[in-house]
Simulated assay, not measured.
Amino acid sequence: MSANTVTVYEVDGMTCGHCVSSVDTEVRGVPGVTDVDIDLPTGRLTVASEGPLDDARIRAAVEEAGYAVKAG
C-alpha cells in the first residue's frame, strides 16, 4: 500500500472563486490525486496523493486551468 503524500505549490494569477474552481477541477483530474485544497489569498495549492506525485502533471494541470505554478 502506498503512503499518502502531501505537496504544496504556489500558484500565480488566481483572483476569485472561479479561478480556484478551475484549478481544483484540473488538478483533481490528475491520476493519484486524492484531495485538493486551495487558499486563494496566499495562492497556496495543497495536493494530497496516493504515493509520489508527478510534479510535471500537476504543473500542466494548473497551466491547463490558465495559471502558473511559481518557480521555486
Score class of each variant (00 low, 15 high):
residue 60 A to P: 10
residue 63 E to F: 09
residue 7 T to P: 07
residue 5 T to P: 05
residue 17 G to M: 07
residue 27 V to A: 06
residue 47 V to F: 10
residue 50 E to C: 12
residue 68 A to T: 12
residue 45 L to C: 05
residue 43 G to Y: 02
residue 14 M to R: 02
residue 65 A to C: 05
residue 55 D to L: 02
residue 42 T to F: 10
residue 37 D to Q: 13
residue 27 V to C: 08
residue 56 A to N: 09
residue 70 K to E: 13
residue 27 V to L: 06
residue 43 G to C: 00
residue 64 E to W: 00
residue 42 T to W: 09
residue 57 R to A: 15
residue 47 V to N: 12
residue 27 V to W: 01
residue 22 S to L: 07
residue 18 H to R: 11
residue 72 G to A: 05
residue 55 D to M: 00
residue 58 I to L: 00
residue 58 I to M: 00
residue 36 V to G: 07
residue 70 K to F: 03
residue 45 L to F: 03
residue 33 V to E: 04
residue 22 S to M: 04
residue 4 N to P: 10
residue 13 G to N: 06
residue 5 T to R: 14
residue 65 A to T: 03
residue 50 E to N: 14
residue 23 V to I: 01
residue 35 D to E: 15
residue 1 M to D: 15
residue 61 A to P: 04
residue 31 P to S: 13
residue 70 K to M: 08
residue 21 S to F: 09
residue 56 A to Q: 14
residue 72 G to D: 07
residue 56 A to K: 03
residue 30 V to F: 10
residue 56 A to I: 08
residue 39 D to Q: 13
residue 64 E to R: 15
residue 25 T to S: 06
residue 5 T to S: 11
residue 24 D to F: 04
residue 35 D to M: 11
residue 33 V to I: 04
residue 20 V to H: 06
residue 52 P to M: 01
residue 40 L to N: 08
residue 30 V to D: 08
residue 52 P to E: 15
residue 31 P to D: 15
residue 60 A to R: 12
residue 71 A to H: 13
residue 2 S to W: 13
residue 15 T to A: 14
residue 58 I to V: 13
residue 13 G to S: 09
residue 6 V to T: 15
residue 39 D to F: 11
residue 37 D to E: 14
residue 11 V to E: 05
residue 49 S to F: 10
residue 1 M to E: 15
residue 72 G to Y: 05
residue 38 I to C: 07
residue 54 D to E: 14
residue 46 T to Q: 13
residue 31 P to F: 04
residue 21 S to C: 07
residue 62 V to K: 02
residue 40 L to E: 09
residue 31 P to N: 12
residue 20 V to T: 10
residue 51 G to Q: 04
residue 32 G to Y: 07
residue 31 P to E: 14
residue 64 E to Q: 14
residue 34 T to V: 15
residue 34 T to S: 14
residue 24 D to P: 04
residue 57 R to V: 04
residue 55 D to N: 02
residue 61 A to G: 02
residue 41 P to Q: 13
residue 39 D to V: 06
residue 71 A to I: 06
residue 62 V to E: 00
residue 31 P to L: 08
residue 65 A to N: 06
residue 72 G to S: 01
residue 59 R to S: 02
residue 22 S to V: 02
residue 58 I to K: 05
residue 8 V to A: 15
residue 11 V to M: 05
residue 39 D to A: 14
residue 53 L to F: 08
residue 1 M to C: 15
residue 25 T to K: 10
residue 60 A to K: 10
residue 70 K to Q: 12
residue 27 V to E: 02
residue 18 H to Q: 09
residue 4 N to D: 14
residue 50 E to G: 14
residue 33 V to G: 02
residue 69 V to C: 08
residue 18 H to V: 00
residue 71 A to Q: 14
residue 18 H to N: 11
residue 35 D to R: 13
residue 66 G to L: 05
residue 58 I to G: 00
residue 66 G to Q: 09
residue 26 E to M: 09
residue 33 V to Y: 06
residue 28 R to P: 05
residue 37 D to I: 08
residue 34 T to N: 11
residue 35 D to L: 11
residue 47 V to G: 13
residue 55 D to K: 00
residue 4 N to A: 12
residue 22 S to K: 12
residue 20 V to L: 02
residue 11 V to A: 01
residue 41 P to L: 09
residue 55 D to C: 03
residue 49 S to T: 12
residue 62 V to H: 00
residue 19 C to L: 01
residue 36 V to F: 05
residue 37 D to S: 12
residue 69 V to L: 02
residue 55 D to H: 01
residue 40 L to D: 08
residue 18 H to I: 00
residue 54 D to R: 12
